[in-house]
Structures are given as structure tokens and as C-alpha cells.
Amino acid sequence: MSVGIKYSDVEVGFELPKVIHNYQRQDLVNYANASGDHNKIHLDEKFAKEVGLPDIIAHGMLTMGVASRVVTNWVKDISAIKSFGVRFSAPVVVPNDGIGTNVEFSGRIEEKMSDKLVKIAIEARCDGTKVLGRSLIIAQLA
């Protein structure tokens, strides 16, 4: 299925190229518009603080979307992606400081399965804290 990456060329423990993503307030506005999720905890600082958050937090689904790039940038072929699941374990807080917040995404082949499928564990860290838990993509290689 996949264009480039061969199942026989990878082993358990193989590390995919990292993705580092910078989140700024405008990125959350863009994601809200593209996804239709206008929950104010992602857009309105006063509201976010009123409901007990430290500041505006990024959409979990924005983080999940960026996390998918670890695998899609690597396999290139969208039809290779068979499943993707995450738990959102910690928020990504995005201050209005013009610097934003960096999250580092990495991926590692955890298991080689039948039918040329591989299970890839994705890790997303913000200042050392894991923001995704149990984040797994199953992809079918060539």
C-alpha cells in the first residue's frame, strides 16, 4: 500500500523523524475555524481562567492532528493509516506572549504485526510533560 517505506526495512524500536510544532494564539483561532470547534477555553483567556484553567489551552484535536504528521510525513501515503487513537493526558497551555508553546512529537515502532501492519507509539512532550497518553497509530507498509 505504502509508496516508500517497506515493512521488511523496519524493526521494532525504529524511531520516526521528530516533528516540533509551535502553538500560538492565532493557530488556535485557525484550528477553531477549520474544525468548527469554537469552545471558548481555546479562544477566550478570561473565560478559560474563569473555568479554572491556567490560561487558554490548545484543542486536544489540534495536538492529535499534529501528532498524525509524525507518521504521514514518513509514509507519505494516506491510505497506509489504518487507525489512530489517543488519550489527552495534559493540556497544552498557550500564553499570549508572541513566543507560544513548543511541543515535540516523536514516534517509535512498538510492534510488527501481520499483513505488513506496524503499531507506532507517538509521544508528545511539552516542557517534559506528556500531553498525549496511549497514542497509537496502526499503519500498513509496503
Binding site: 510544532h21 485557525n30 484550528y31 475555524n33 470547534d37 489540534l62 504528521r69 507519505k76
Partner: peptide
């Protein structure tokens, strides 16, 4: 959607959506 998550893979131009697009 792909621009909002930074996905600039070739399949976008070919009309295919990013993996998490259906959430929208």
C-alpha cells in the same frame, strides 16, 4: 484543515484529507 495542523503532504493537493479531518 490541513493548513491548521501544518500537514503539507502531497496527498492534500491530490484531494485527500488529513487523518483527523473527520473530527470537523
Amino acid at each position: 484543515f490541513s493548513a491548521a495542523i501544518g500537514d503539507d503532504n502531497e496527498y492534500i493537493k491530490q484531494g485527500f484529507a488529513s487523518p483527523t479531518f473527520l473530527i470537523s
